[in-house]
C-alpha cells in the first residue's frame, strides 16, 4: 500500500519535472575488471541514474588524470595509501560517510583507518593482501614465504612470475631481508638489490594478467593478490595462496567523491548504497576480495565462505601491514633498483 503511494508520487514527480532531472547521471572511475555490472544495474534501477564506468590500471594513472582536470568523473576508488595525497591536493569532497545512514554497517576495524580517520571522505570498497600463488602440482613445500620468488626452490626455477608492481615487490623484498616499509637504510636496500638481481634469472616473466595464467597453468607460481588467486582456484583447484611470514602488504581501496564532481548527490547516494551489506557482497562476489561491511558475508556465494584466500590464518595475520606511500627520496632509490632489475 505504502509502496504504491510512493510509486504514484514518483510517477507524478516524473511527469512534472524535466527529463534531465529525472534521469540523473553518475560517472565512476574505477580499476578495470573490478566492478560488478549487476551492482551498477541495481543502483541505476533503484535511483533512476545512468552510470558510466571508466577503467584505470594504476593509482598513478588515476591521480594524474584527475589532477589534470576536465575528466568529468564523480567517483574515484584509490587505494587507501593514496587517499591522503588526494586530500592534500584538495581533490576530494568531504562527504562525511560517517554521518550517512548505512555507516553503522562498516566493520569497526575499518572505521578509524590511517588514511581517513573516522571516515570523513571514503567508504570501504574492498581490501586484500599481496602474497604468493603457487600451483601445488609443481611445488608442495611451504608457500607462506617470499622465498618462492626471491629464492625459488629448484622445482620452481624459471617458472615464477613477478607482477611489475614496484611498491609491492620492493616492500615484499624489504620485509624478507628484515627491513621496514619505505626504508631508506642503505644496508637493507643493498641486500634487497642483490637479492632481486640474483633472483631475476630464475623468473619466467614480470607481467600482469595472473588470474588467467594461473588458471591455464602458464604460471606455476607468481606474486599475486588474494582475490585474483581465489578466482583462479575456482577453475584450477591446484592453485594455492600463501601469506609470506616475513611480511606482506595489506591494502584497501576506498570510494571517494571528487571535489569537482557534477553529480554530488548521486555520488553520495552511491557511497551510502555501497555500505549496505547486500550490495557490498555483490562487490566481493564479482572481484573475489573481502569488503569492510559487517553482515555482508551472508549474502556472498557459498564458495567464498571460509575461502583460504579471504581468511588469513591466525598465525600469519601479524605479518600483514598497510603500506604507506613512500616519500620521494625512498621512491627514487626504489626506481633505480627497479630499473637495474629490468635493464
Amino acid at each position: 500500500m505504502r509502496l504504491s503511494t510512493l510509486t504514484m508520487t514518483a510517477a507524478a514527480l516524473l511527469a512534472t519535472t524535466t527529463l534531465s532531472f529525472a534521469a540523473g547521471e553518475l560517472n565512476i572511475y574505477n580499476w578495470g575488471n573490478y566492478t560488478n555490472p549487476d551492482l551498477i544495474k541495481k543502483f541505476e534501477e533503484k535511483f533512476d541514474v545512468k552510470v558510466t564506468l571508466t577503467d584505470y590500471d594504476s593509482n598513478t594513472t588515476a591521480l594524474t588524470k584527475i589532477e589534470a582536470g576536465g575528466h568529468g568523473f564523480d567517483i574515484v576508488v584509490p587505494t587507501g595509501n593514496y587517499v591522503p595525497i588526494y586530500v592534500e591536493k584538495g581533490l576530494l569532497l568531504e562527504t562525511r560517510p560517517d554521518e550517512m545512514e548505512n555507516f553503522k554497517n562498516v566493520a569497526p576495524r575499518w572505521v578509524d583507518v590511517p588514511w581517513d580517520m573516522g571516515r570523513h571522505y571514503t567508504v570501504p570498497w574492498q581490501w586484500g593482501t599481496t602474497g604468493i600463488a603457487v600451483n601445488k602440482k609443481s611445488y608442495s613445500g611451504d608457500i607462506n614465504t617470499s622465498a618462492i620468488f626471491l629464492d625459488p626452490p629448484a622445482e620452481l626455477v624459471g617458472k615464477v612470475n613477478v607482477v611489475p608492481e614496484m611498491s609491492d615487490v620492493m616492500n615484499l623484498a624489504i620485509f624478507y631481508v628484515g627491513g621496514e616499509a619505505c626504508t631508506e637504510d642503505k644496508e637493507v636496500l643493498r641486500k634487497v638489490r642483490d637479492l632481486l638481481v640474483a633472483a631475476k634469472p630464475k623468473w619466467q616473466s614480470m607481467d600482469y594478467g595472473t588470474t588467467d595464467k594461473l588458471k591455464n597453468g602458464e604460471y606455476q607460481a607468481t606474486v599475486n593478490w588474494n582475490g585474483s588467486t581465489f578466482k583462479a582456484r575456482q577453475e584450477n583447484p591446484d592453485v594455492a595462496y600463501g601469506y609470506p611470514k616475513e611480511g606482506y602488504p595489506l591494502w584497501m581501496d576506498a570510494v571517494a567523491v571528487l571535489k569537482d564532481a557534477k553529480n554530488v548527490e548521486n555520488a553520495k547516494l552511491f557511497q551510502n548504497f555501497l555500505m549496505e551489506p547486500e550490495n557490498a557482497a555483490m562487490i566481493s562476489s564479482f572481484a573475489g576480495y573481502a569488503n569492510g561491511i559487517s553482515g555482508s558475508a551472508e549474502f556472498m556465494p557459498e564458495k567464498m565462505k571460509g575461502a583460504p584466500e579471504l581468511e588469513t590464518p591466525e598465525d600469519l595475520q601479524a605479518a600483514g601491514q598497510f603500506l604507506p606511500v613512500c616519500p620521494k627520496s625512498a621512491r627514487d632509490i626504489y626506481t633505480a633498483i627497479w630499473t637495474e632489475l629490468q635493464k
Binding site: 612470475n161 614496484m166 607481467d207 621512491r331 627514487d332 626506481t335 627497479w338 630499473t339 635493464k343
Partner: peptide, 25 residues
C-alpha cells in the same frame, strides 16, 4: 616487448613509461 617479452627486460618505450608511471619522474 611488454606482452611477448614478459616485461622482464625493458626497451626504451617501457623505460619511458616507467618514468611517467610508477617511477614518477
Amino acid at each position: 616487448p611488454r606482452v611477448l617479452g614478459g616485461g622482464k627486460n625493458m626497451m626504451i618505450g617501457n623505460f619511458i613509461e616507467l618514468q611517467f608511471g610508477q617511477g614518477r619522474n
